[in-house]
Design a protein around this nucleic acid. Structure first.
Lengths: 363, 363
DNA sequence: TCATTCAACCCAAACGTTTGGGTTTCGTCC
DNA sequence: GGACGAAACCCAAACGTTTGGGTTGAATGA
């Protein structure tokens, strides 16, 4: 045992070649050959000898050496606002899974939704020579995407979209419409929206979809009832409090574009003496695992987060191959629960999971 | 613009050397020199010319080439149960931050707390030639750590500990003791514990700390009132329901070793008609951002998750340098909120943040 | 019989760095 | 005036792969 505790050097192609008495290039071709062997590289007998020894010695190619030679790292960079946001974390899980399946590895970094940090993190990724980028934090009007295009960096967007660039997102507009339909048919006419950050297409689209459908139904959403907010619980609470401070009648229903904001808003309403689900309906978005398990189960629109991540990888692979790819908007489903079941549902907590209008079953 | 949209090749040392009319090794030394220049590598004049041109051309060293030569990747691998668990995600944020500061990059993978997957993910990391590993998912009695030691792989543990190996964790035992003190002094005598997975030191230690202190105070925790559980909301709900199904008197207080399990349990209790904070006290662990914002704010022990992650990186760097390092247990703080404020606190939601006994201020 | 073909290999040059060792060209000292 | 030493460089090998192009030797075809 050496004092430094140094790891013993990994076995290389050269080692295998020497042990077999053949040339290193032959070993490489055998071990790498796409079209099985046959490629004229080696006899079947030699090929099996090579493969057997490789397995025996535990050979695994040095990715650094391979990258140096092939000019590809098989690594993709992922930038998200923050991984401690369960939505992005789940999307990233999908990314990691799909990337692993195609033998890519992933670097992920947090940008904290800061424009400078986005750029900085992207530069770090590129300095690491990633083969492509997945951006989960694109801001409306950001110039970063244009720069990346100019530099011929392959990338796709995830979670948030940006017109003109390929993205893997939820059908946020459609999701907003589902919520409008639900609340309207439950008899609500006075509503408010906790709309999220204005630079994020998610919140903007969900809000737009809701408003659009609400108008179609004959309703109206006053401007001052659409409150921007952070996406976290604290942001939802602040927006909820703000809403209560506004003059005029308190709305009978609130659509928060994010489950966490919804939870914060519920806290604010409860603190003001309102009973969520009776005095005021609350609807969230994403249907995170929490929503159904809350003391007052939260109505929410389920977005296929894992799938959004997986799709992003597939799209990126095609972009890296030079293909043109179209954006994908994954359909969403509404899950109605006690938080918006308007008094009819007993407060015993029995979950009435009648979905509306594109029904989904609850767990 | 080339048809494949190929990225233009990055500028290399050779490019710079050619343009300056000097040798590539000189450029390398100038740009790399730890002890500023002076090293006899080049004149100060040449050095500035080199540096200026490098900046101008946007030179950034090829990490693959560097790694190939130096046998170090400056990459560290991180394995966690799942990144969609906000606790691990936050620790990872700390890891990423600290790693970036020392110019390391990080790969992170999910093991889903599956032993085979742990091994598989570790192998993938090692195949990528990471310089070291941070394991956030070690299981009690796992043989993986021993194997890593045998293979001289530098690693540290995070989040969960394993006797005999360096780990960066929360002082889980102490946290459990804080909860015991709090509940005891609030007058509770009949308690139950939702204890988490038996293979995770976090849950085990928190439970042990609680029980230990409870005994010191003269209390008793019946065996059947310590329920194993998953760490998520669903797991907490199941354990809560199980608890209510048990015969005998319902406990007046429940300690869940994790905020999410606590939230699930709160749901179960409410569904049974119990008012959390009045009929039954609930305490969680980790003080995730949700806890304070819940409709019924949750008493919780705050663990410094970010710091745990940062510390893990510092420890790993020392392990990689061949030093011996001792485990670090980060102290925790109890934040008392309405969920365990035993009726005295009004249900208006006014948060009474009197901490006990090692007080912490609330946000 | 001899050119041709093919299988089964080998050769060597890259990819971009790092680094242990030269080799000049001075200025200085004795 | 020659030795010496330092400053300021250059040289070349190595890290582990990949890959376009050899080179054999035997079998085949006309």
């Amino acid at each position: 045992m050496d004092p430094a505790g140094r790891r013993r050097a990994a076995v290389t192609l050269k080692d295998l070649a020497a042990e077999l008495g053949i040339h290193v290039s032959t070993v490489s071709r055998v071990l790498h050959s796409d079209t099985d062997v046959a490629r004229g590289a080696a006899s079947t007998e030699t090929a099996t000898r090579v493969r057997d020894l490789a397995k025996l010695r535990g050979y695994s190619p040095d990715p650094q050496a391979t990258s140096l030679r092939t000019r590809r790292t098989r690594a993709i960079g992922v930038i998200v606002p923050r991984l401690s946001d369960i939505v992005l974390a789940t999307m990233y899980e999908g990314v990691e899974e799909a990337a692993a399946e195609s033998n890519h590895s992933t670097f992920v970094m947090n940008s904290h939704d800061d424009l400078d940090e986005q750029r900085r993190k992207a530069e770090i990724m590129l300095a690491r020579r990633v083969d492509g980028l997945i951006l989960g934090d694109v801001h409306a009007g950001s110039s970063l995407v244009d720069d990346l295009v100019k530099r011929h960096v392959p990338f796709v967007l995830m979670n948030r979209r940006y017109p003109g660039f390929p993205s893997s997102t939820c059908d946020d507009t459609g999701g907003g419409r589902l919520v409008a339909d639900h609340l309207w048919s439950a008899g609500h006419r006075s509503v408010a929206i906790i709309a999220g950050e204005p630079y994020a297409s998610t919140g903007v689209d969900r809000t737009a979809g809701f408003v659009e459908r609400w108008h179609e139904l004959g309703g109206e959403v006053p401007e001052d009832r659409i409150l921007p907010s952070r996406f976290d619980t604290e942001g939802g609470r602040q927006a909820g409090e703000e809403l209560l401070r506004l003059g005029g009648e308190t709305p009978t229903a609130v659509f928060a574009v994010n489950d966490f904001a919804a939870i914060g808003a519920m806290g604010a309403f409860r603190a003001a003496g309102l009973v969520v689900g009776q005095d005021i309906a609350v609807v969230g978005f994403n249907d995170t695992s929490l929503a159904a398990q809350l003391p007052i189960p939260l109505t929410s629109v389920r977005s296929p987060m894992l799938e959004i991540g997986r799709t992003a990888v597939g799209m990126l692979r095609r972009v890296m191959a030079g293909e043109d790819v179209a954006s994908v908007r994954h359909p969403s489903e509404l899950f109605v629960r006690e938080s918006s079941a308007s008094g009819a549902v007993a407060w015993t907590g029995a979950v009435a999971a009648h979905a509306y209008p594109s029904a989904g079953r609850d767990l």
